[in-house]
């Protein structure tokens, strides 16, 4: 039960983080379309780090 609540919290946190990353990346791309490639790479790396964090927490809590 507590595991599930924890998992939900992790998903909320991760979702907010991913939303921030994606949203800011979109803003950046719309502001500077010529830097799309660089922004995407950086976005994927940061998203991957966040994902690692979230998955780590999920698995530790399981």
């Amino acid at each position: 039960m507590y595991n599930l609540i924890g998992a939900g919290l992790i998903v909320i946190g991760g979702g907010i983080g991913l939303g921030q990353i994606g949203g800011k990346a979109m803003e950046g791309i719309s502001r500077q379309p010529e830097a799309t490639g660089k922004i995407q790479t950086a976005m994927i790396i940061i998203a991957a780090l966040l994902e690692g964090l979230a998955f780590g927490a999920l698995i530790l809590g399981k």
Partner: peptide
């Protein structure tokens, strides 16, 4: 240690 740990967890969990 956490860096490669995140690597292995990410791949496995995904």
């Amino acid at each position: 240690f956490t860096k490669p740990f995140a690597l292995l967890i990410r791949l496995f969990a995904n």
